[in-house]
């Protein structure tokens, strides 16, 4: 049969249909061949979470919370991550960044690590089982100690201790982790006043008396 003898409309339909089939086949193949296991957004969110595995969000770890967020949960349940984490997740998901939900805890400025008062430790291994990081070293009836570098300060070991010999200590500032502080933002807020306005009444008084 001569193709040219076909009605142009039919011809167009045939061509378009053929193209649709070809591209459909290509897309179908690609979908099978390049299939991505799991939800990639979960990985991205998990990357932003602080990985303390503290469970303050109500999930048994950071990844489950990432999955929860991917399924539409609130993003403001992570106190260890704080506002920074909320902001970056909001950025990733393209939503407005809410305030940290105080129900799950408050953000602390200072990072802490667990410290075991070794004289009091009875070697019960309860904290070892509680630690999600395997950051506590010890054995039954042997004194335990915290590997400070691996401790995320999640707090989970404090509660199970039968003799309350674990405390959370602030991470010490050393030459290695010291950093400059941002200049006080207050100066920027009050930047629309001239220098002499900045003086407190006492200072002005003193100047007056001196004069």
């Amino acid at each position: 049969m001569d193709i040219s003898s076909l009605h142009p409309l039919v011809l167009a339909l045939l061509v378009l249909g053929g193209l649709a089939l070809v591209f459909g086949a290509i897309l179908g193949f690609a979908a099978v061949r390049y299939k991505i296991e799991g939800n990639p957004i979960v990985d991205q969110i998990d990357n932003l979470l602080p990985q303390t595995q503290c469970g303050q969000c109500g999930h048994p770890g950071c990844r489950p919370y990432a999955e929860g967020i991917a399924n539409g949960e609130e993003i403001n349940k992570c106190p260890p991550g704080g506002q920074d984490t909320i902001n970056s997740i909001a950025d990733l998901l393209g939503v407005d960044a809410p305030e940290l939900d105080a129900e799950h805890g408050t953000e602390s400025e200072l990072s802490t690590v667990a410290y075991i008062r070794e004289d009091e430790c009875i070697g019960c291994t309860k904290c070892i089982q509680a630690c999600p990081m395997d950051a506590i070293l010890g054995a039954a009836k042997q004194m335990h100690t915290v590997i400070a570098d691996e401790c995320t300060g999640c707090d989970l070991c404090v509660e199970p201790c039968p003799v309350d010999c674990i405390e959370m200590r602030e991470v010490e500032v050393t030459m290695q982790n010291w950093k400059w502080q941002l200049p006080s933002p207050l100066a920027a807020v009050n930047s629309d006043i001239i220098a002499s306005d900045r003086q407190t009444p006492q200072e002005t008084k003193q100047e007056d008396t001196a004069a």
Binding site: Q51, K179, W180
Partner: peptide, 29 residues
């Protein structure tokens, strides 16, 4: 001062990121 502080923060964030990656690994292990 702003730049020094920001540099410090970025370095800190990098260290923390590294630590959190390590933490994740440890947790998964």
């Amino acid at each position: 001062q702003y730049y020094r502080a920001s540099k410090g923060e970025i370095r800190q964030a990098e260290i923390e990121k590294e630590k959190s990656d390590r933490s994740r690994q440890r947790f998964e292990f």
